[in-house]
Design a protein around this nucleic acid. Sequence first.
DNA 1: CTGAAAGCGCTTACAG
DNA 2: CTGAAAGCGCTTACAG
Lengths: 350, 350
Amino acid sequence: MVKRKSPRLAEVRKATVIDVAKAAGVSKSTVSLVLRGSEGVKAETVAKVNIAIEQLGYVYNRDAASLRNKESNLIAIVANDLANPYLAQVIMALEAELERRGFMPVVVNINESVARQTTMIASLREHNVAGYFMTPAPETQASWLKGLASSDHPVICLMRDVAGSDVPYVMPDNVKGVYLATQYLISLGHKRIAFVGGVETISDYQERKQGFIRAMEEAQLPIKAEDIVPSSTKREGGKVALHRVLDSDNSITAVMCFTDVVAYGVYSALMERGLTPGKEIAVVGFDDLEDSRLMSPALTTVKVRAEDIGRVACERLQQWRENNSVPESALVGVELVVRASCCSVGERAG
Amino acid sequence: MVKRKSPRLAEVRKATVIDVAKAAGVSKSTVSLVLRGSEGVKAETVAKVNIAIEQLGYVYNRDAASLRNKESNLIAIVANDLANPYLAQVIMALEAELERRGFMPVVVNINESVARQTTMIASLREHNVAGYFMTPAPETQASWLKGLASSDHPVICLMRDVAGSDVPYVMPDNVKGVYLATQYLISLGHKRIAFVGGVETISDYQERKQGFIRAMEEAQLPIKAEDIVPSSTKREGGKVALHRVLDSDNSITAVMCFTDVVAYGVYSALMERGLTPGKEIAVVGFDDLEDSRLMSPALTTVKVRAEDIGRVACERLQQWRENNSVPESALVGVELVVRASCCSVGERAG
DNA sequence: CTGAAAGCGCTTACAG
DNA sequence: CTGAAAGCGCTTACAG
């Protein structure tokens, strides 16, 4: 890279509405009307103003506008963990929805830390953000969240609920998803099924576990305590958890996983033991990540459309802003996607 | 969720510096000094002001401050694809560095689209962002990028270069990384090696390919045109590309992959053909994602520390802001991590 | 459409 | 430390 004398741009005063008005030969008020896309301005005048804007390289100053208007177009997406691929899908869906509606989405990552969540939200408040989507960190205080949310600053929780906060959430129908998947395993003849992965302090874990228990109980199948092993929601969590299960009891024939990523870890653990996923042991995931159909064997999983989460969450936020009334929470539909990772007990190898 | 009468917060005027001053029994100027952490204020006064801030629920208005100061603490991280797990690592590293330095990082996703890149950057400019890190979209115009970057608005490119833009970049030493990895494969006795995955219009592809070619040529090994198969950088890309390679020629004994994710796709393709990765065919990746050591077999790969990229990029940005001189580009060091995915030709199965 | 004016909430420089 | 004042760039309401 060539070192060059840096331009002294710091001294070039930025063009303002006044400069644009002079260059276009119109008044300041008119320029402002054009900027805001007002109706009552002649097409000819609009053209003149736009040419002046172009020539001067004028940049609209939203800080000034926000200060004057007391409103901003910023919407924050506060993400618990950017490394979570499903969350990345949800974020992209939200971004698309928000832009369609004229908002500017900004993503902030809190890495599952309440402390970071607190400082990041404080900063966002100083920046006059118009609303928040957040996947709350574990241990988030209901009272804190309740204090944050208002019709001035609506908050919609994604994927997780904070009990007692009265803040609406949008999340998959976790109970139903795992219930359907477990029923499917049972229909293949499986009787000893493990439930693997997930962090106990987060609401989605309790819900998915509940779906598992419900299906097992309805089929009058026993659940041994050692067959439910929580763990981190990373690939490593699934791997470690499955080794734990198989170490304590090798009569398991199927594994219901907390997420697809956990299922990937389960695949790794099985292969390390010389087992073939879907052959000796059936595996089901949750999320339907893009990679899951590409796994070998392709992963049977519970599909949750990230676009649905994004759309419903945006509708809720806008409703709160516009109607000034707290919207209802929503459960987004789920669907079992059957692929190749589940042997029936009859055709089971080993 | 219970519907509740929404609080009429819209009518509650927010506390300002003046209100805080009154409540604390000091002047507006003093409050401002306290807010900015100025030295010359008695500890007792600072305490009084902070109590008033707490009581009134005062929120600092950065729009007003930025307008007055003509400076902001916002730094944008413009990401080409949030679904790319390595980029997620880099973003998290950058965030940590930026916060340490008192900046507020915001992430914006452009989904590999030049159009979105243009509109997002325009929005960020209106928000008076103090600097940009970006992984430029394919087809980014050098002239556009050149026009964007200045000491007022420094831009550091990450992972990719835009030739002719004179904008500094920070990226891994791609040539060296693939060169080292290919040399390693050659040292294991491999003579027919494929180079798989990656998009030809992006600078990192050309560099990694160059490293491959250099190592092969130095060892006087021939490269057949069919052995170099570009593809999307997703898992599916690796899968499709490897099938292509094996369909056209089955004498390949090793595969150098553009990234770890591509290598995961290669694993899938091999397994679909009844082959075991690392047994019949050696596989090497690039990135060293967290998952790679958990794969079965654990993936040999080129490690690039995301923290190094983050730290060096931040240093460069700050240097540009403070010294008013365009910093040099930087190549970050790489390291070959040998795991279990590479059989030698001698011990090769099949 | 124009033009003068006021004000959003902050910071800064200044006289005391 | 105080207190009055000016100004950042915008929008809005108003009289013309």
